[in-house]
Amino acid sequence: MVNLGVKLKDLSLKNPVMTASGTFGFGEEFEDFIDLSNLGGILVKGTTRHHREGNPYPRMAETPSGMLNAVGLQNKGVENFCKDIYPRIKHYDTNILVNVSGSVIEDYVETAAMINELEHIPAIELNISCPNVKEGGMAFGTSCASAASVVKAVREVYKKHLMVKLSPNVTDITEIAKAVEAEGADSVSLINTLLGMAIDAETRKPLLSTVTGGLSGPAVKPVALRMVWQVFNAVNIPIVGLGGIMNAKDAIEFILAGATAIQIGTANFIDPQVTEKVVVGIEEYMKRHNVQDINDLIGALQIQ
């Protein structure tokens, strides 16, 4: 038996496979397809202090080897999550993480404080990188000072594992990673979507209602891998890698680049069973390479 278990500081995962927020609903949407207890963790939808309707349709455009989205954090707010959704999903035998987003620091703080009280939520992922909200969101994650200020404020009220999701839409992602580490982040997840756009030449119109949106899928994987590797060489906290992972081979590449765990996002739309397949595929890879412990692969990239 090989060991697939990893630890993000104090947070133990039975295997490194998690789901990316905004691609996995509340987990319930996938119960027909997979056994959630086979996953290391699930990230539920981006949750904000107040109800958000999200952006107008159209919110999605297919692009070469990927897709653009402009959902805009549609959700019913943290109170609805705590009251209606949490009781439905708290029994899942996996780590349930809530992705927390906001427009102003007070919203992040209040949302995180409420989720801190939920017994079966061992961690939050602080989303300072959503490209699809007008104010806040990505703006927090694109400067060291604002990223540090939101992490510092949330750290004061949130006592469990604090993961911070980083934006790739920056000049140097290692500077942001170091800034959030200094303010007490327990781990970083990267990358969120890359800001992009798509145009219909025939109609001369943008394909998204918001003109620009977030690019995900295999198209972003090389960028994501590069950033995981750069951040791995810059910080001491664990890294959760994501960006275009479609199969176990992709997942292994992120682990070799320095990720302790990985998240699968867009691939869930194409194959709702992909997460379970990646867990099995990682195990097969380890057997094939005679690796007993997944932890031996973290950052094991051989440069020379």
Binding site: G22, T23, F24, G25, E29, F30, K45, E53, G54, P56, Y57, P58, R59, M60, A61, E62, M67, N69, V71, Q74, T266, N268, F269, P272
Partner: peptide, 22 residues
């Protein structure tokens, strides 16, 4: 017939505006 990514309620891309919101 809206453009959609997943087809089962996970991506929230294919919304239509109704009297009760998206």
């Amino acid at each position: 017939e809206n453009t959609m990514a997943c087809g089962f309620g996970a991506c929230l891309c294919c919304v239509t505006e109704t009297t009760e919101g998206n």
